[in-house]
């Protein structure tokens, strides 16, 4: 009899528990993988990281090697109507050559490094600073909170691009601006503005989470502020943090490219063994002067920037939809 009961119950259990319980993160990951645009974005982003890391092995030429007499060569595959100079391309230079005969394709590959490092280093800085400030301000309130909001007001009243420009302009000649071909200053400039947006979001989220019962429960069993913030509040606001960080990455890359285009980015390297040889922004600056003679000098880095920004934006959209399904299709 006993076996019969069990056997009789089993089908019901099966219909109730068709799936193993999934955590929020596994669930979100599944939603992300199903999102075609997000996966396309991820592939693009990974591809560019691959190029940035293995640049020296992928580039067919030395990015700084000057090929005299072979300047302004168009790509060999470019149709005749697109060439204004009457020069004939050389198949060994896939994207043609620049003003002094350097291979545009190799320079493009080396230039990926700057954008990808900008996608990581300033992002980490602004995330750490933004999350800590936002948590503390939201949790403790009072003076810290007031101070944060006032700082936010001031930073928001600066058009951010203008602020980058002013910082880069003022400090490029100083010793800070000399560190690492100006990369250090670039990171500082980007980070100074970027953390504020994250801090604001984290503060808002913290304000609502800290009123929840589980925080009160933790406090009643003697949990100190640090423990509550790290064990209870932070894990609960991780989704909005990931979303806002994902959206700040393309903005950082665009800002870097614009600064380079204005001649305020990092200094060009003098040897191809340096880590940063050139950036897409500086390539565009050079390309702008040769727009009629060799448009691919300008077009190639522009397409690269567009692609990488698109990749990060699609990924960010996908992360938002996966982590916060209520937000789907908005914004």
């Amino acid at each position: 009899m006993a076996t019969a009961t069990v056997a009789g119950r089993r089908p019901i259990e099966n219909t109730l528990n068709t799936k193993a319980p999934t955590s929020l993160w596994v669930d979100a990951w599944r939603r992300l993988v199903r999102n075609k645009a997000a996966m396309l974005g991820l592939v693009i982003v990974l591809l560019f990281f691959f190029v940035a890391i293995f640049g020296p092995w992928l580039a067919p030429h030395d990015p700084l090697q000057i090929n005299s007499g072979q300047d302004f060569l168009p790509p060999a595959w470019a149709p005749a109507w697109s060439i204004n100079t009457g020069k004939v391309g050389d198949p060994q230079f896939f994207m043609g050559t620049d003003t002094i005969g350097r291979d545009v394709w190799s320079r493009l590959i080396y230039g990926a490094r700057v954008s990808m490092v900008v996608a990581i280093v300033p992002t980490i800085i602004i995330t750490v600073v933004g999350v800590i400030t936002g948590l503390v301000a939201g949790f403790f309130g009072g003076t810290v909170d007031n101070l944060l909001m006032r700082v936010t007001d001031i930073v928001y009243s600066f058009p951010d691009l203008l602020f980058f420009v002013v910082i880069m302009f003022a400090l490029r000649g100083t010793f800070i601006g000399e560190l690492g071909n100006g990369v250090f200053l670039l990171f500082v400039a980007l980070a100074l503005v970027g953390w504020v947006g994250i801090a604001r979001v984290v503060r808002g989220q913290t304000l609502s989470i800290k009123e929840k019962e589980f925080v009160e429960a933790s406090r009643s069993i003697g949990g100190d502020s640090r423990r509550i913030m790290s064990k209870h509040i932070l894990p609960n606001i991780l989704s909005p943090i990931i979303i806002i960080v994902a959206f700040s990455v393309p903005r950082l890359i665009i800002a870097e490219a614009i600064l380079g285009y204005l001649g305020l980015g990092l200094r060009p390297g003098t040897s191809s063994s340096e880590f940063f040889v050139t950036s897409w922004g500086s390539m565009m600056l050079e390309g702008q002067t040769a727009i009629n003679a060799q448009p691919f000098m300008l077009l190639a880095p522009a397409i690269a920037v567009a692609l990488v920004v698109m990749g990060f934006t699609f990924l960010g959209d996908g992360l938002r939809d996966a982590l916060d399904p209520r937000m789907r299709g908005t914004g």
Binding site: P250, I258, A302
Partner: peptide, 15 residues
């Protein structure tokens, strides 16, 4: 329009 930065768009159109 949201993903392609305006100055990159400008470069494309000028060329």
């Amino acid at each position: 329009g949201v993903t392609v930065p305006s100055f990159v768009m400008g470069i494309f159109l000028i060329i």
